[in-house]
Design a protein around this nucleic acid. Sequence first.
DNA 1: ACCTGAACACCGTTCAAGT
DNA 2: ACCTGAACACCGTTCAAGT
Lengths: 249, 249
Amino acid sequence: MDAPNVPDVIHLASPCTSYSGRVTKRSEGARGRLSRDVIVACAIALADAEGLEAVTIRRLAQEQGVTPMAMYWHFSDKDSLLDGMAESLVAAVKLPEPTDQPWDEQLHGILAAFLDAIRPHPAVAGLALRRILTSPSGLALAEQALDLIRSAGFSDEWAAQAGSFLLCAVITLVGSQPGGAGHVLEGEARDQMLREKRAAMAALPPARYPNVLAAAPWLVACPDEDAYYALNLRLLVQGIKGIQPVAPA
Amino acid sequence: MDAPNVPDVIHLASPCTSYSGRVTKRSEGARGRLSRDVIVACAIALADAEGLEAVTIRRLAQEQGVTPMAMYWHFSDKDSLLDGMAESLVAAVKLPEPTDQPWDEQLHGILAAFLDAIRPHPAVAGLALRRILTSPSGLALAEQALDLIRSAGFSDEWAAQAGSFLLCAVITLVGSQPGGAGHVLEGEARDQMLREKRAAMAALPPARYPNVLAAAPWLVACPDEDAYYALNLRLLVQGIKGIQPVAPA
DNA sequence: ACCTGAACACCGTTCAAGT
DNA sequence: ACCTGAACACCGTTCAAGT
């Protein structure tokens, strides 16, 4: 915006903050190490910092000090880059070991593990929606969840339908957290947006929307993320428990 | 794809199928009737037919027999077009009248009404995620849902957190329905994609993924959409019932 | 009030070519 | 094996101008 017509070369040395917190420059030292994993990590870091719409083939190349077309050696197209990002997220899931706890508590553990993996990357989470069954880690996740659900007496059909929805619902949980999970905009602009949302709420006719106004503080922002996630995770587990077809032994 | 470099003029007479099923040509008869509502309806129809990524300022203008820049008279930018599409969806919600049924049954009715409104437009549903509280119809929806939830004894905070999640979860429900809710691709290509997904499943090691394989038929497609929606709607309502803080009278 | 024309800064992607 | 250069068909958007 500020500097139109500036050629790519200027930003060659831009650092690429990886999502684990480390910083990966490739201005001069690390030249020549351009791999799938590095690109994916950089793409995730970029999405975390500026939103998914900032993840662009050209921008990624610039961040790496490389020509846009170099990306096409490592990825057939942009969609497979997105696949890689999603796969990287679900690969980070730390699946709990099966125990002798009740099935619903174990299921809770699995969903919580999935949540923990995607929570740091709300802008990327949505990509996993239709990509869970395409990666080994996602399959392991689904396998373990389905195992528990079927052990509770659900038919194959119900287990499939409820199980896939539960995983998608966890993704939604992080993508739709009231505070606004997309851009993670900086302090100044973020405060401004919050002010505007609060003002819009305050302008509502109180006689018509008493309940919305009472809930407003938790609708415009998310003052306690942990509480939000804990509550709705319990909601999901209680939900599938509530439609359980047969009583367990 | 087939005819590159063809100027816009050629497709002037393209019909624009509105989402209610009517066809709105504007080749010669209806010239001059270009309004917000017509554009939004056309955009929704286009998204239904070819997916959200086909909804483009330029494509919309072409469909309307008009210059791309004409859109900017009616919408300040593309985002406000998207706002309009989302608002149109939630405006179609037919909210049930309050009754003397238990709160959870009434809440089920509200979520079902919301589901019915967005189900015909899976490609557009996701747009409503962060736009419910910005339109009168969305506010009415939230108001009624929050009213019921608070009447069940939930605190303002819990009602806000669970309520907003429930509405988002309904959106997810239509966006993540196993059959693939995005493009609605035509019979030929659709069958091919189903074949590929089934083949990928069949190629999995059966000893490692017994549960995924048992559930496979309902994971790759959605043979019974009604059952899918009914089951998971019940799951959501049972879920919030399951975390109810105090017993009702 | 409503629309056009020309232009700008972006996209993803292909294809031939370099090392 | 890995990357570059030039080109193509798209995007959203601005600005001045037409009627």
